[in-house]
Amino acid sequence: MVSASSTTGGELWEVFVRPRRGLAHVHVGSIHASDAAMALRNARDVYTRRQEGVSLWVVPAAEVRASSPDEQDSFFDPAADKAYRHPTFYEVPDALHL
C-alpha cells in the first residue's frame, strides 16, 4: 500500500537556515521529503542555492507545537506591563555610562 504522502514525495518538513556564523537558525519555509536525510538534502538544494546558509535544520512539520492565536492575549499580554524588565525604566546619571 502506498501512503498518500508518497504521491508528492513525502512528508512536510519545516526548514531553518543559519545565514552565517553568529546568527540563529531562522525559519525559511518547508519542503517535502520521505525521510530526514532526504529532507536535509532537499532543503540544501531549495533554500541555499545562493550561499544563504552555513547550517540547516529540518523538523517534521507535524512535530511543531505552536501557541494558539486564541491564547495570544493570555500568553503575551501579561508581559506588557512589566516595564521594569527593561533598562530604560531606570534613571541613572548619564555620565556613569551604566
Binding site: 502506498v2 501512503s3 508518497s6 508528492t8
Partner: peptide, 15 residues
C-alpha cells in the same frame, strides 16, 4: 515519477 516516490516512502517505512 510515481514509482520513485513510492520507493522513497517504502524505504523510509523500513528504516
Amino acid at each position: 515519477g510515481a514509482w520513485v516516490r513510492e520507493a522513497a516512502a517504502a524505504y523510509a517505512r523500513k528504516q
